[in-house]
Design a protein around this nucleic acid. Structure first.
Lengths: 229, 229
DNA sequence: TCAAAAGTGTTAACCATACACCCATGC
DNA sequence: GCATGGGTGTATGGTTAACACTTTTGA
């Protein structure tokens, strides 16, 4: 028992609310806990922050360890610090939310997780601790942010069709969008460019692929441009 | 040295970024530290979180103790957790930002502060730790939020003139607004009501006083209404 | 009578919305 | 040839932006 302090210290953890998008569903990454408390229950990936490690490094490490996910859009979400969140001791959890290109990542359980899986956000299992609340805040944030920052592209593969992009927005915002107006608006921003590539082997007219012009967006943003759906 | 843990624990603090508005200036509340490190330097009000105390309770307690400010709009801002923020030990700080009606609060130094004062945000002194960075994030948030939530009213007295309200927006957003368009927009929302009261003893035509209809706003918000500048 | 801020409407440009049909492909 | 999603333009109404003079008051 070597770590002693003059005043009581809470434990600090990080939790990741990791979203992916898959054809028609917004999905959330969960792990099944290998240890107590809540052993065997589904929970957000996360864990204790190392004493000399930044918060963001801690989340990235946990996601790498527990799920093999690397390379993602990551942003701090909120800090949950109610005194009775964890039965063991006072635990303050800094939650991050992350967006990953689902099709480009295979997840697999590693050290702390019995199992790792993507769940449609509409059909989540019961979650450990107050993780349900954390997911709720994450969803709210995603929904708010997708409207005024081009983060939707983080959920899609490099090449995508306008149909896929529109379905993504409709799913996240939970409302249908007019196809012609959507295309007019997106194309009008000149933030995505058409490729000379089309879908293959689809049972209907093949859609053209597009790519997000990240550099152009960064440039425009510096000049005061604001993305808005 | 009674508090011992199996793994090292960081200390957790809260810091308050407290804004006020005064005639023509956006102001920030600072304290001069009574203790090391950074004794005598200006810093954000804040301190360690009690082991059985929620984060928000901790900020409120600190603001009461150090400055006598009670009753304020308070919201979590961001959590700063870089390993070397504090020379003593690993300290993770959960920052909150707060808006107060400057004219209705007299601040005074109490337990931990040698001195307490309001500084115009444009002319801040050097700050302890990474508090400059925290203030920057707070300002950014205020600027973003004031556009789509009616938080400006938290900075004004109960009764205010449209001129005061406009100056507040111009100050926070750092851009001039057209008087006629501003009034049209604000009055069109029907969120503020005119009182039968006018300025006294002003060297120009006396302005009418208005009041924010908070209840009506809450009602409209539940029905899906969105405030926007 | 001057200075200082309050108060007040109209017009033109732009943007958001609503809406329907033909196209290409695989089965 | 049919089912499926891709792709395209216009007209209307509403919203935003630009703009200048009169009023009231105290010094």
């Amino acid at each position: 028992m070597p770590f002693t302090y003059q005043y009581p210290h809470p434990a600090v953890t990080v939790d990741g609310v990791v979203f992916g998008f898959d054809e028609a569903d917004l999905k959330l990454l969960l792990i099944r806990r290998r240890i107590e408390p809540h052993m065997g229950d589904w929970a957000l990936p996360g864990g204790f922050v190392g004493i000399a490690e930044s918060l963001e490094d801690a989340v990235r490490r946990k996601l790498r360890d527990e799920t093999d996910i690397d390379h993602l859009y990551l942003e701090q979400l909120y800090t949950f610090g109610e005194p009775k969140r964890d039965p063991r001791e006072r635990v303050i959890s800094v939650a991050y939310y992350a967006l990953v290109k689902l099709s480009e990542h295979k997840v697999r359980a590693t050290t702390d997780a019995l199992e790792v899986a993507w769940f449609p956000v509409a059909k989540l299992p019961e979650l450990a601790f107050d993780h349900e609340r954390i997911v709720e805040v994450g969803l709210q944030r995603l929904k708010a942010k997708v409207r005024y920052e081009p983060i939707g592209f983080e959920l899609l593969p490099e090449k995508f069709t306008l149909g896929e992009l529109q379905r993504l927005y409709e799913t996240v915002l939970e409302q249908p969008l007019d196809k012609r107006n959507f295309r007019k608006k997106i194309l009008g921003m000149e933030l995505i460019e058409a490729l000379d590539e089309y879908q293959q082997d689809v049972a209907h007219r093949a859609a053209q692929y597009y790519r997000f012009k990240r550099q152009r967006y960064e440039l425009l943003r510096k000049r005061g441009f604001n993305f808005e759906l």
